[in-house]
Nucleic acid binder design. Structure first.
Lengths: 250, 250
DNA sequence: AAGGCCGATTCCGTCCAATGGAAAGGGAGG
DNA sequence: CCTCCCTTTCCATTGGACGGAATCGGCCTT
């Protein structure tokens, strides 16, 4: 459109506006939004008005903005999350009841794991992940499972980039990462000790679609150090197979 | 933009495109989308390209379109669903374990209930609702609870419109609806026998935010007829109070 | 092999909707 | 009263959006 030195499309702007609602920010003013999306206030104001009209955003009592129900409703039809979530929930519950630890299900998105379902254990370790949260592939147990089962193109792309560290235990040498990935493919599970947080440990296994391909990673987060983390693996496998069976029936 | 005999904004078009993904349709072609959204193919094609670039839509192997993970991720930050969902899930599980019936949590959106969480009971009645599904306020137990606790403006608006029937039991006389709403306010629960489906019965109670206002309705769906549906009410109340307490702690 | 059909994709001349700086309006705080 | 910050409205400008038409490509029928 006119007068935009930027030369962006409306869609880009809208996406930046929506994307400004990250975790932890539940309500924003128009000016906040404009700053976060790097748009002139007047422009933000107009676009926001339209988005509110469409229900993608909502205004609360003091005129602040929130992500709207309509958006949630549309998103609830996203097949990669919805079918998976519904199929997996009962098994996550079993697993969580049995282990009393954080239990989570993640899918691959770009170079991150996106967690689509999570059951937390009240008395357990701090868990950094959230529903709708992300972690880089190389640093999380779920991520390693997904990366190990992804195309070699993605693997090389991740290996070529610098690997950010969260703790001193986070693998950041390409060689070590290659070895880890080979281990995941061989053992069909992975144990990550303190990669994200020194006090936590992740154990994850792949979840297959009925056709065979890996569609998600199922993991638990337990305190670090813990004795015999391998005890969780068979439970994870059982749950993962259950999810695969449940996916067949839809 | 130019040449549009319609005179619609880009946002409107985008929303129509996204809205074309209703329940049951998981993947659509560009032409399908164009038809559903009532847009020229060329226009749909261009917009879709941008949406895919932004991650709001995804293309599968045979170029068909699905709702993208990015959209789901943004929507997962919608506070009215997310906080509620996380707070409510443990209580829904308890309730579902105790009753072995469909258990669901709905919020008010427009003149519908939108179900934001649902646990289904494998062996139980057919349940018409889905996660992300809707039912009209006057015909469902959750809807009546929400309507009874909504502003009188909304109540009058619903009463003024024709009330569609699902079965012969669905209330469709304004007088009867007024009486039902008064009953909900008096008893703090409602029992709906066969309003949606002759073989199903809904029982629902309000869920209050810590500040006191009603933010959701919690309900179970049981076979119709069932003896003593009142037996479920105290369990529902307990769970609803638990959710309120859980909402305080965030 | 040819023809027909349908969907995806690209082109490109037209032109109006989107843009955003500026200014006015509103309310909280000092 | 003044300041500060946010919201909302105005409006002249113009470049991005538009969409009919053409092309490409796959699949089915004859």
């Amino acid at each position: 459109m006119a007068r935009s030195p930027s030369g962006e499309s409306v869609v880009e702007r809208v996406v930046r506006l929506l994307g400004a609602f990250e975790r932890d920010v539940s309500a924003l003013t128009v000016s906040d939004l404009a700053r976060r999306a790097d748009l002139p206030v007047a422009t933000a104001h107009r676009l926001v008005g339209e988005l509110v009209g469409a229900g993608l955003l909502e205004r609360d009592a003091d005129r602040r903005l929130r992500v709207g129900l309509r958006l949630w409703e549309i998103a609830s039809h996203a097949p990669r999350t919805q079918g998976l979530r519904e199929a997996a929930l009962p098994f996550l519950e079993n697993l969580q009841a049995a282990t009393r630890q954080h239990t989570q299900l993640g899918v691959l998105d770009g170079t991150d794991v996106l967690f689509v379902e999570r059951l937390s254990a009240p008395g357990s370790v701090v868990n950094l992940t959230r529903l709708g949260g992300r972690l880089p592939l190389h640093a999380s147990s779920s991520g390693l499972v997904l990366l190990a089962n992804a195309g070699s193109g993605l693997q090389e792309r991740v290996l070529a980039e610098p690997l950010p560290r969260f703790t001193e235990h986070t693998p950041h040498e390409p060689e070590r990462l290659r070895a880890l990935l080979a281990g995941v493919r061989r053992d069909h599970h992975v144990v990550c000790r303190g990669y994200i947080h020194s006090d936590a440990m992740g154990i994850a296994v792949p979840v297959h679609a009925p056709a065979g391909e890996v569609v998600a990673a199922l993991g638990v987060v337990v305190p670090h150090p813990s004795e015999n983390p391998g005890q969780y693996v068979s439970g994870l496998w059982t749950a993962a197979h259950g999810i695969t069976r449940a996916l067949r029936g839809r």
